[in-house]
């Protein structure tokens, strides 16, 4: 995941002239392409190992609410993805010659919220597609359309941060991300049992 994410950022950095206005406009999209594509690699593996070895049934047999399995998997995926993102961020800033001044924490907040939304839906969809033969293909096909609000909000908010806009300009995008996160965590928690049951 990390290597793939860094590779995307490095390859795109060769394509654009560092520090130019055009680069500044394209940078948010590049960052989120790197994050979502590398995140997809991680999500594809959320359940695949356990399904391939059969140990998924051992967990499903446990006397626990299956929503807890969903939350555990979501938290695990979030931690991995967030670490990859935070590690990639300095490379991204340096390679694209970006000046964040004191807006670094705002960018981390946007990444944090968007990643929650991404893994909340991604974990549920990963459980849905893991039994299909073409699971690596099915997951992005199903997930990306649902992720449009998150990606739009994340790219626009990142663009505003790179333009050093006021906090108030980003607040609207943050509200969308928080609403999406809450809605899909609750929805996925409630439906996970039906998704994993045959």
């Amino acid at each position: 995941m990390l290597i793939f994410c860094l590779l995307v950022v490095v390859i795109f950095s060769f394509t654009f002239d560092p520090g130019s206005e055009y680069t500044k406009e394209a940078a948010p999209g590049i960052l989120w392409v790197a994050f979502t594509f590398s995140g997809m690699l991680g999500l594809n593996r959320t359940f695949s190992h356990e399904v391939d070895t059969g140990s998924i049934h051992g967990i499903l047999l446990a006397p626990i609410d299956r929503g807890a399995i969903y939350l555990g998997k979501t938290i695990g995926s979030f931690i991995f993805m967030f670490i990859v993102e935070i590690f990639t961020l300095p490379f991204f800033i340096v390679l694209f010659d970006l000046n964040l001044e004191n807006h670094f924490l705002q960018l981390v907040t946007i990444i944090f919220l968007a990643t929650i939304g991404f893994v909340a839906v991604g974990t549920l969809f990963s459980a849905m597609t893991v039994h299909t033969k073409t699971r690596e293909l099915m997951l992005p096909i199903l997930l990306f359309p649902v992720m449009i609000p998150v990606i739009l909000a994340a790219v626009n908010a990142t663009g505003s941060i790179l333009n050093l806009d006021e906090w108030s300009k980003i607040l609207g995008w943050i509200r969308i991300l928080v609403a999406f996160d809450l809605a899909f965590i609750v929805l996925s928690y409630l439906t996970f049992d039906f998704v994993v049951e045959e």
Partner: peptide, 15 residues
Amino acid sequence: RRKLGLIAHATFLYP
């Protein structure tokens, strides 16, 4: 499920 134990052909173990 708390009352259950299941042994199947698959072992449900983490290799």
